[in-house]
Amino acid sequence: MAIEGIDLIKAASYLGAGLAMGLGAIGPGLGEGMVGAKACEAIGKNPGEAGLLTRTMLVGQAVSESTGIYSLVIALLLLFVV
């Protein structure tokens, strides 16, 4: 099959989108899991502060999620804008 310039660019942007979101999801998934693990540990040790600890966990996970959202944005840009 003959490959033309625009086709090559499209192909590269699709591959880039998949890799951006796929690889970009590894870090946040792991990081948020660690936050969740430590939050469960802390609640186990000090159940009285469960509300405060859950709030802290969610804020921490939200920050860690941001890199996953960057990946999502880049993937969507590569798919539909570029």
């Binding site: 591959l15 989108a17 998949g18 890799l19 979101m21 796929g22 690889l23 970009g24 999801a25 590894i26 870090g27 946040p28 998934g29 792991l30 990081g31 948020e32 899991g33 660690m34 969740g36 693990a37 993937a75």
Partner: peptide
Amino acid sequence: LCTGFGGIGPGVGNGM
């Protein structure tokens, strides 16, 4: 590739 790589982190994270 996207769903494959994307599943590694959350799978381990949920397990932790």
